[in-house]
Amino acid sequence: MFRNLKIHIFIYYFVTTATFLGILYYFLNILHVENNLLIVIVLLTLLTFSGFIIAKLSVEPLFQHVTNLQNLSKETLHELNLPISTIKTNLHMLKKSLSDEKDLKRAIRIESACDMLQQRYNELDYMIKLQSSNVAKENFSLDELLRQRVEFLKSIYPHVEFKLNLQPTQIHSDKVGLSKVIDNLIDNGVKYSQNIHKIDVELQDYSLHVKDYGCGMDEVELVQIFDNYYQSNENMQGFGIGLSMVKRFCDSNEVLLNLKSEPDNGTTIILKFKED
């Protein structure tokens, strides 16, 4: 599709340029027109029309392609919701009839996996709304959201000790987007704390501190850490887009972002929210 589009634009550009040169030659050497203003007006008119055609050729197919992808994503997302809900409902009923400890543990693992699928569903739904600028902000308890996200991440990282010091805090913000930010910050802390499995989460005076006790970063790494696809440790899993997403969220929601880190002394990321 896009290969043919490039060919069409190139052909149109080549023909248009040749036409302009031919018209200019005709005016100057055949008609011997000396009125430069007339030549400029004619050429500007043709350039404007040509620019409109090139824009139409290049943008409309891309717009249609993006629209089709968005529609497909929405339809797929809608279809995913039903099986997830079915699994959770039936699993909840099944757990009531299980008495064997091993079977109960298996059911709990299935439930955790289903919660992770639900989380991915929520993230996809959020990304679609974000693309369409349809993200809703709401009033909610930030300390309660932090407890919920830590409880969720405990099921993924049972070996990690989470220390919470949370002051009751009400904010008005994008709750789904902030949930993704919190998950990314804690997930990064766990990944880069391979020897000391401990994460501190503190919320005081509208400031959120997420501290790990991992490898830390030097000044060079701190400059690049918010770039897309940058990873201070290439052996880590993931695509290096987490902190870039965090920065975009903070910039669009007027949240001050700060980062403190030293090699071998861990990293602390600080989010400062607006006071209501």
Rank of each mutant, 00 (worst) to 15 (best):
Y230R: 04
K260L: 13
I241Q: 05
N233V: 11
L259I: 15
V190W: 06
Y229S: 14
D187S: 15
Q204R: 14
Q237Y: 15
Q170A: 08
L243I: 00
N188R: 07
I199S: 01
D183R: 00
N165F: 00
V181D: 07
G189D: 07
E234N: 14
D227L: 12
N228R: 12
Q194V: 12
H172C: 12
D200L: 05
G214D: 09
Y192S: 10
K180Q: 15
D212C: 02
S207P: 01
G242Y: 02
M245E: 06
K247Q: 08
L259Q: 09
C250D: 03
G242M: 05
I225W: 03
M217K: 08
Y192V: 10
N235H: 13
S252D: 10
N258H: 12
I225E: 02
G214H: 03
S207W: 03
M245K: 07
V220I: 13
Q237G: 14
D218M: 09
E202Y: 04
V246G: 00
T169G: 06
M236H: 14
G242D: 11
N188M: 07
S193F: 06
D174C: 06
S244V: 00
G240K: 09
N233L: 11
Q224V: 11
V255T: 09
C215M: 13
I196C: 08
F239N: 13
V201I: 14
F226P: 02
D183I: 12
Y229W: 06
G238S: 08
Y230D: 01
I171H: 03
K175T: 10
L185F: 08
Q231Y: 01
N165M: 09
V201S: 05
D251T: 01
N258K: 14
I171Q: 02
N195Y: 08
Y213D: 05
K163S: 12
Y230C: 04
L164D: 11
G216T: 07
D251H: 05
V223H: 12
K175E: 13
G177W: 04
L243W: 05
D212Q: 07
Y230P: 06
I171A: 03
I171N: 04
V255A: 01
Y206Q: 07
K247T: 03
Y213Q: 02
K247Y: 01
S193Q: 07
Q167E: 14
G242I: 00
E219C: 10
E254W: 02
V201E: 02
D187K: 06
N195G: 05
L166A: 11
M217E: 05
E254V: 02
S207N: 14
Y230A: 03
L256V: 09
Q224P: 09
D187L: 06
L259K: 11
E202A: 13
D218V: 05
E254T: 08
D187R: 05
G189P: 08
E262H: 11
